[in-house]
Amino acid sequence: MGRSKADGGAGVRERILAAAGALFAEQGYDATSVQQVVDRAGVTKGGLYHYFGAKEDLLVELYRAVFGQRLAALEKILAQGRDPEWTLRAIIDDIVVGTAAMMTESAAVSRELAHMDSDRTQRLQADWRRYQEAVRGLIRDAQAAGVFAAVASPELVSWSIFGVTTTLHTWYRPDGPQSADQIARELADLVLTGLTARP
């Protein structure tokens, strides 16, 4: 049996991912059925399985969509070799603004990935740990060089950043009193003020 017209249209894969992300964010991965995803996306199950072999593939692809961009941006920022203050500010700006731009997908990933325990999701979590360690390495090196004050461990400093960004989907609103750019700037100001080396 051939696919329906809805299944054959442009952007089908993106529609399926968008539907899955919204449902995972609203009601959780376990509570979401494949049928609910295809109903919301306006495709058939055959259309979904043409692009994704299983429901877990949807979560994995959402993770890649969200985190792949952040990891690529981190590598690009670090490759510029700028001073630690500029670099940390750029990282904070990217992760706040990037997360805000993909709020539904970020909510689905943050909520669900920690509960997944397959080999594939463990590899994705390893990428997240690599991201964290890169940020901590930046802070650690700057503290060792006396550029940043050693007022707190790199781990604690990094979690002061990640604690905000990984929960952004729970409190940030695009129509709220502050834009993502403003939040990023204030968070960077707060972190860097604490890290300013003092004579």
Rank of each mutant, 00 (worst) to 15 (best):
E105A: 15
V37Y: 01
R15T: 01
F24A: 00
T170A: 11
D94F: 11
L59Y: 02
W86N: 11
A188R: 13
T104N: 01
S158G: 02
A41P: 04
G8A: 07
L71Y: 15
W171H: 14
K5H: 10
I139D: 04
D93A: 15
A149N: 05
G42C: 05
S179I: 11
K55S: 07
V151C: 10
D93Q: 15
R129Y: 12
D189C: 03
V12I: 04
F162Q: 08
A126S: 10
T99H: 10
G176R: 07
G42N: 02
A65P: 00
A101D: 12
D119H: 08
S110R: 13
P174N: 08
L168A: 06
G137M: 06
Y172I: 01
D57Y: 04
A65D: 13
Q36K: 14
T167V: 05
E186G: 03
L195Q: 09
V97N: 03
L192K: 09
V164K: 02
L88S: 02
R136T: 11
A73G: 08
G28Y: 09
E112M: 05
E186F: 14
I139C: 09
Q122M: 12
A180F: 02
G42Y: 01
V97Q: 06
D117C: 04
T166D: 12
E105S: 12
S158Q: 11
D119F: 08
D181M: 10
G28I: 11
A134M: 09
V135G: 00
S110F: 14
R185Q: 15
F162T: 04
F148Q: 02
Y131L: 12
A22F: 05
R185D: 14
F148N: 02
E26H: 09
A107Q: 11
S118R: 11
R173M: 07
A126K: 14
L168T: 01
Q122F: 13
A10R: 08
L71Q: 13
Y172R: 05
A152T: 00
E14M: 06
A65N: 09
A6I: 00
A65L: 14
A20Y: 04
A54Y: 08
A79W: 01
H169Y: 15
G146W: 02
G194S: 04
Q35W: 05
R70T: 10
H50P: 11
V147C: 05
S4C: 12
T87R: 07
A107F: 03
Q125E: 08
A100E: 07
L62W: 12
A31T: 02
A107M: 06
S153P: 00
L48Q: 07
S110H: 15
A188Q: 13
A73R: 15
H169P: 00
D30C: 05
R136W: 01
R120F: 09
L62M: 10
A54K: 13
D30Y: 04
R130Y: 06
D181K: 14
L88E: 03
V191F: 10
F24I: 01
I183H: 04
S153R: 04
V147W: 00
M116C: 06
L192S: 10
R70E: 12
V164C: 06
V38Y: 00
V157N: 05
T104Q: 07
P199I: 03
V164S: 03
F67R: 11
E14I: 12
A18H: 01
A142K: 01
T121P: 09
V38R: 00
A100Q: 08
I16C: 09
R136K: 15
E186D: 14
T44K: 02
G163P: 02
W86Q: 14
P174H: 12
D94P: 00
